[in-house]
Design a binder for these strands. Structure first.
Lengths: 221, 221
DNA sequence: GCATCCTATGCGCATTCTGGTCATTGAAGA
DNA sequence: TCTTCAATGACCAGAATGCGCATAGGATGC
């Protein structure tokens, strides 16, 4: 997660940079509004931390111009002025939040997390070895190369990955993936496992989808 | 825009309800945490305004349970306690913001607008490849050339673009675009997808609107 | 009257499944 | 330890299914 701090007071800037880096954010600092705006426009930051009072271009102006340029990076104001009017102006200009100085660093961290949370989202993604499956986008990758799977193949792989590490019995697979709840005597599962392994190019060495003879299958790293 | 206020003090509740209704929000009030939580879970509000101190179930607990139930309605705390620890707990529990009493009504309004803005969508312009859709002006472009779409075509394209990257299931499309909430067995979606592709001149190579057989469709770059 | 919206239909083809043969496994017996 | 053998899964075609595409035509509303 990349954060750009636009702050002119070196002491505060250093304090923010160090504190945020300890939290594993990648932090860059711009010490005036003009430079900050330029950097924010040309690079893709995940969040901007902008001082309200800046030499050259004010924080409010930075925010306005950024939004005018269709850039919607989350933006938090650091403001010493705690009059209501100012904060309102900031929010109207398209800021996502503001925090009043002096602030507790913990509170700042929390507000940052809140802003970053929706962007991070909860993407349902499962993996085994080089295989990755994304439920939302209905995509499957092997080493970042997309593999086209049919619906049943996808459903089977998803089931195995959802239960990664646990052996999936044939009976359970037939019930959950094929929705067959009575006796069955078909070899469908084998056929699809075969197709999966082939499409995912899994060999004997890369047995991420193992056969448990007499029982079923497992996905294992 | 529907707002649920969970607040036990009748005076404040009345004040909020009246003030927000003047701003054209549809406001409902619950006077305890349990009822509020139940209402929030069963109905689709656009925003929750929750008092920190509530009889029965605390505001914090309401928030926790709501998020635990995978409900991500924006939630603002109204808190008299202004200790940092409390607000942090609130944000960690999944609240989007909090406001300290006593507050200026104007500031509350702004914070509400900020929360509702992302839901309403700041960039009301969506794109895939050479296709651009502008919600505000109700226009669609292919390479800067305007394409005339009917209302349904537009609605379908808008839905797909709003969920760009994610697979849209036929069931969801029928519900969201056609407002049909029961079983359906029509081929309307196909017909409209066909029309869209034709009007937007999308070929097999330019499959920005892909079909996911057996599932639905995706807009993808 | 015209554009829009939806239903109905046939067709092509990817998907899915069946049935079969071949390879592998693991346990029992020599 | 090695061999044998039955059971099980791997793999391969080919058949059946049904989904989505395309187009035409009827209903509806402005």
């Amino acid at each position: 997660m990349r954060i750009l701090v636009i702050e002119d007071e070196p002491g505060i800037a250093r304090f923010l940079k160090q504190g945020l880096e300890e939290e594993a954010y990648a932090v860059e600092v711009a010490d005036n509004g003009l430079e900050g705006l330029a950097r924010a426009l040309e690079q893709a930051y995940d969040l901007l931390l902008v001082d309200w009072m800046l030499p050259g271009l004010s924080g409010l102006e930075v925010c306005r111009q950024l939004r005018a340029a269709q850039n919607h990076t989350p933006l938090l104001f650091l403001t010493a002025k705690d009059t209501v009017q100012d904060t309102i102006a900031g929010l109207q200009a398209g800021a996502n939040d503001y925090i009043k100085k002096p602030f507790h660093f913990e509170e700042l961290l929390e507000r940052i997390r809140v802003q970053l949370r929706p962007a991070a989202g909860p993407p349902e993604r499962f993996t085994v070895g080089p295989i990755a499956l994304d439920v939302a986008t209905h995509q499957v990758f092997r080493d970042d190369e997309e593999i086209a799977l049919t619906q049943k193949e996808f459903a089977l792989l998803e089931y195995l990955l959802r239960h990664k590490g646990n052996v999936c019995r044939r009976q359970s697979i037939i019930e959950q993936v094929w929705d067959i709840h009575f006796e069955y005597n078909t070899g469908v599962i084998d056929v699809y496992m075969n197709a999966l392994r082939k499409k995912l190019r899994l060999s004997k060495d890369e047995d991420y989808l193992q056969t448990i003879r007499g029982i079923g299958y497992v996905a294992r790293d």
